[in-house]
Design a protein around this nucleic acid. Structure first.
Length: 413
RNA sequence: GCUGGGAUAGUAUAGCCUGGUUAGUAUAGGGGACUGUGGAUCCCUUGACUCGAGUUCAAAUCUCGGUCCCGGCCCCA
């Protein structure tokens, strides 16, 4: 028997219906925030992702040569493709450009709880604007999405890459070693950062002050202590978010995010119920377009890990109710099967979801089946009622029955 | 890449340590009891030892390897 490749899943109808429903909720939020959907190819030139993330990504990329000897990779994320599409064809669109996307991405990693090789991301980008209002819009939408799905336990943390970068430069760390230091700080590995800083020649006191800065964590009031332009910017941002009703935020200057194209605000959201893989959302402001041959344009974006947020919801006990169908048509005997066919197609024509017994079951079994597919009504088609132009409509929940005209079954229901 | 645990019908499980009938049970699926009324009951039926190699007279059971799953690291764009 052949099974799904490692790290991939089949989504059977019950689960897919649920996923589509939640996907619909996210789409709804995006529309309400004035975003329009964009779709890009599932595979791209591998170069696109290498430009974005460095050659190190290759080991986690699903890449291959196609028959034309092109170096292709399945997309591991969607920000780079969207910015590529912007550079290729949306450069002259009115700014700001607000787009969202939903689709699967692929990474060659070891699968774990909430981590798959084929996974789904829902994300958005605001291209061509670099104001606090832009960042606020992105964070507010991410918060609204999490809330709309009904997730209760989550944290949104906001940081600013500029604060740390500025400080790191000020204390004498050369540009080419910044990433190395940031990486340690991101993990709060101060013991590993100390020897690196010492090696560079940073004074111990400066190093400790730097560590203190990454420990600037807490409610929005800690912003009072954040110096410089970044502090002013973040205070402005938090103020706007407050006006938008987004309150439960944490400030954490230790939020660094791996890549160096982030330029200012960075944020992430996590769901503690998830354990090791608890991050459900990440984003920030950045510039990428110049890497892909366009002019330099500021953007802010974020992506939600769809699989993870669903997992978190499941762990919180959020239940999804299957939709079912409106009516299940049951012919009582073989001589009325044609009449039943007329009735089911009339129901379908009028926009109801309707199904009919096609296995020649007896009524008892047919009713049981109707229940198992969550039909709201059973339409029992029998000789007796047909002679009077009627059928029996049975409410599957209450068991109540009444005779209704065969050509207008749902009048008055 | 490192590391711990695991895999028995669609699902949930018993059996494994201590090798030995036809691999048990529940539930789900199909049919019937019930020839026009479901979620109950009873009966019949379909359906499984992850794969490969080894040890043995004999392997679901012991050994080794592969695959996949669940965790913890590394990584996480």
């Amino acid at each position: 028997m052949i099974q799904c490749p490692r790290g991939t899943r089949d989504f059977l109808p019950d689960e897919l219906e649920k996923r589509r429903s939640y996907e619909g909720i996210l789409r709804g939020v995006a529309h309400r925030f004035g975003f329009r959907e964009i779709e890009t190819p599932i595979f791209e030139d591998a170069e696109l992702f290498i430009l974005r993330s460095g050659p190190g990504v290759l080991k986690e990329l699903y890449n291959f040569k196609d028959k034309g000897d092109r170096d292709i990779a399945l997309r591991p994320e969607m920000t780079a493709p969207v910015i590529r599409a912007f550079v290729n064809g949306m450069g002259s669109y009115p700014k700001p450009i607000k787009v969202f996307y939903f689709g699967q991405c692929f990474r060659y990693e070891r699968p774990q709880a909430g981590r798959y090789r084929e996974f789904f991301q829902f994300g958005a980008e605001i291209i061509g604007s670099a104001t606090p209002e832009t960042d606020a819009e992105a964070i507010a939408m991410a918060a609204s999405m999490i809330k709309s799905l009904g997730l209760k336990e989550y944290k949104i943390r906001i940081g600013h890459i500029g604060v740390l970068r500025q400080r790191i430069a000020d204390i004498g760390v050369p540009a080419e070693r910044t990433a190395e230091v940031l990486q340690k700080l991101d993990k709060k590995l101060y013991d590993e950062a100390r020897p690196i800083l010492r090696d560079i020649g940073v004074a111990d006191a400066d190093a400790e002050a730097l560590f203190d800065l990454t420990e600037t964590v807490g409610g929005t009031e800690v912003l009072d202590k954040v110096p410089g332009e970044a502090g002013t910017y973040l205070r402005e941002l938090v103020g706007i978010l407050g006006s938008m009703g987004v309150e439960d935020l944490e400030i954490d200057l230790g939020v660094v995010r791996g890549l160096d194209y982030y330029t200012g605000m960075v944020f992430e959201a996590e769901a503690p119920v998830l354990g090791a893989e608890k991050q459900i959302c990440g984003g920030g402001s950045y510039t990428l377009s110049e890497l892909f041959g366009g002019e330099k344009v500021f953007s802010t974006g974020f992506a939600i890990g769809f699989d993870r947020i669903l997992l978190a919801m499941e762990k919180e006990g959020i239940e999804y109710e299957q939709e079912g169908i409106d009516a299940y048509v049951i012919p009582v005997s073989d001589d009325v099967r044609r009449d039943a066919a007329v009735i089911v197609s009339r129901l379908r024509g009028s926009g109801r979801s309707a199904d009919i017994d096609i296995m020649g079951r007896k009524m008892a079994k047919a009713l049981k089946y109707a229940d198992s597919i969550r039909a709201r009504y059973a339409v029992i088609v029998g000789r007796k009622e047909l002679d009077g132009g009627c059928v029996t409509l049975r409410d599957m929940k209450t068991g109540e029955q009444r005779e209704v005209p065969a050509d207008d079954i749902f009048r008055g229901v």
